[in-house]
Design a protein around this nucleic acid. Structure first.
Length: 481
DNA sequence: TGCCGCTTCAA
DNA sequence: TGAAGCGGC
């Protein structure tokens, strides 16, 4: 092991809000001392950078950052906050702090990778050492490809090819460092973009699409409600990890049941914000005792669905805006504004859909099976473009990420590479009977009065036929061009 | 990781 | 009359 020198490294935290299993932080500590920064990034003129956070994620990140600041402080590492364009802020901070190196965990969305590449070049031109480290994924997207193809388009071959590989060991929390001089922090704060956590404005407003509710409930109400259901940051993540065994046990049969219980592990926001690493979860799942092969395998499979989504997102720029199958550009969507509002506010008259949309609004999270049902309802029964649903989920889910969210919507809408055939239209009444036969989930989220007062906004059989007609119309457009 | 309508066949 | 099996969408 290398002896620690007096080097100073700036570690740029992004979607990796943890101090364990953090390759960039570990490497930086091995080189000497560390100062950390998190930037609320706005996209530059070229549209580079991460997709602006939705409302629910802004709340989560605000809370999680305040915990991360504490955790880093226990290690003697100051965490700086800044808002603006990272292409300007990171080099300026590196200069003012006079660091020797800059390190970060890789991100994989094309617009973010381009920005990171640009920043890396700029820093190297100034003579700094720069390293990006893996950590957000088990499989680097450029390392897996089928024979004669550039990337996998179907999950099962991807899963067979990449699962079972060695992912290495979980890294421990680095050892504490001596306090850095206050003069150093002062020089960073001379940078105009540097602020404190509240100064980032993450809690201002409720997000782009949530005006639907804002008028009735006021802008703070939403965050206050969501916050009753989650504890972002270290303690919450550790508790979620302790529940992992219960989450895996019985998973292969129970994961389709939306009613509250131990049927799902609710780890998605932890992964989204990097409070837990996929490697750590994989290791924990592999070593959990008293678990059947079926349960273990189907749980780990879900981890790899996330990998597959990022694999697709890496290879498809603008996956949140354009269909992977281009013929869906000609799909005759209806896009009725009132229908969208009814869906968003859980007033479609179909209890499973309305319960799901209510759970989303109240908690920032929705059970996966219900996500599929509500998404099918919007894109097929209401004939809305999947992008509108994707944007609503982006704004309201605490686990919305740039890959899973658009890829899953495209999967349901039929425009994805490995998508469900379009004619698979979920029937929300039938799904309700199959997966919530005792109304446990419905009763959890819908009051009897709302349930009874709302009459269905569309007929299931008629709207299903209309969707199949629209699909035929798209195909005939395709055939004639 | 469907749904529907049709057919068959046993009560 | 309805469960069960299928093929088409």
């Amino acid at each position: 092991m290398e002896a620690a020198s007096e080097g100073l490294t700036l570690v740029w935290f992004r979607e990796d809000l943890r101090v364990h299993d953090h390759a960039a932080l570990t490497a930086a500590r091995a080189d000497g001392h560390v100062i950390a920064v998190w930037v609320r990034e706005s996209r530059d003129d070229d549209g580079l950078g991460p997709r602006p956070l939705g409302g629910a994620c802004r709340w989560w990140v605000h809370e999680s950052l305040s915990v991360l600041e504490e955790e880093l402080s226990h290690l003697g590492i100051p965490l700086l906050f800044a808002a603006g364009e990272s292409a300007t802020i990171i080099p300026e901070l590196a200069g003012r702090l006079d660091v020797d190196a800059v390190r970060w965990s890789r991100r994989y969305a094309p617009a973010s990778r381009s920005l990171d590449g640009r920043i890396k070049t700029e820093l190297r031109n100034r003579g700094l050492t720069v390293h990006s480290h893996p950590g957000a994924l088990l499989v680097e997207p450029w390392t897996a490809a089928p024979q004669g193809g550039d990337h996998y388009k179907v999950f099962t071959p991807f899963w067979k090819a990449v699962s079972g590989g060695d992912v290495g060991d979980v890294l421990p929390v680095p050892v504490e460092q001596p306090r850095l001089s206050t003069g150093l922090i002062d020089s960073a704060q001379a940078c105009a973009a540097v602020t404190d956590l509240d100064g980032l404005g993450l809690l201002d407003g409720t997000g782009t699409g949530s005006g639907v509710f804002a008028a009735a409930d006021g802008p703070r109400w939403w965050q206050d409600t969501i916050s009753r259901h989650w504890t972002p940051g270290l303690r919450g993540a550790a508790a979620a990890l302790e529940d992992l065994h219960a989450g895996i046990d019985g998973y292969s049969t129970a994961h389709d049941i939306p009613a509250d219980g131990a049927s799902t592990s609710r780890l998605s926001p932890r992964l989204r914000h990097g409070e837990l690493s996929p490697r750590q979860l994989l290791r924990a799942a592999q070593t959990a005792e008293g678990i059947t092969v079926d349960d273990r395998t189907s749980w780990i499979r879900q981890l790899y669905w996330r990998e597959f989504s990022w694999h697709l997102a890496y290879h498809h720029p603008d996956i949140d805006a354009w269909p992977i199958r281009p013929e869906f550009n000609d799909f005759p969507y209806d896009d009725d504004e009132g229908a969208l509002r009814s869906w968003q506010s859980g007033q479609t008259g179909y209890p499973l859909v309305d319960a799901g949309m209510t759970q989303l609004w109240e908690t920032g999270w929705m059970h996966n099976r219900v996500r599929m049902v509500t998404a099918s309802f919007l894109t097929k029964n209401l004939l809305h473009h999947w992008r509108h649903g994707e944007q609503w989920f982006w704004d309201t889910l605490v686990d919305a990420d740039e890959a899973n969210n658009p890829v899953s919507w495209q999967w349901v809408a039929g425009s994805g590479a490995d998508a469900a055939p379009f004619f698979r239209v979920f029937n929300p009444e039938r799904q309700r009977k199959r997966f919530d036969p005792d109304d446990a989930y419905i009763d959890e989220w819908l009051s009897e009065t709302t349930d009874a007062e709302t009459s269905p906004i569309v007929d299931l059989a008629d709207s299903r036929h209309a969707a199949l007609d629209a699909y035929d119309q798209m195909k005939s457009t395709e055939a004639s061009t």
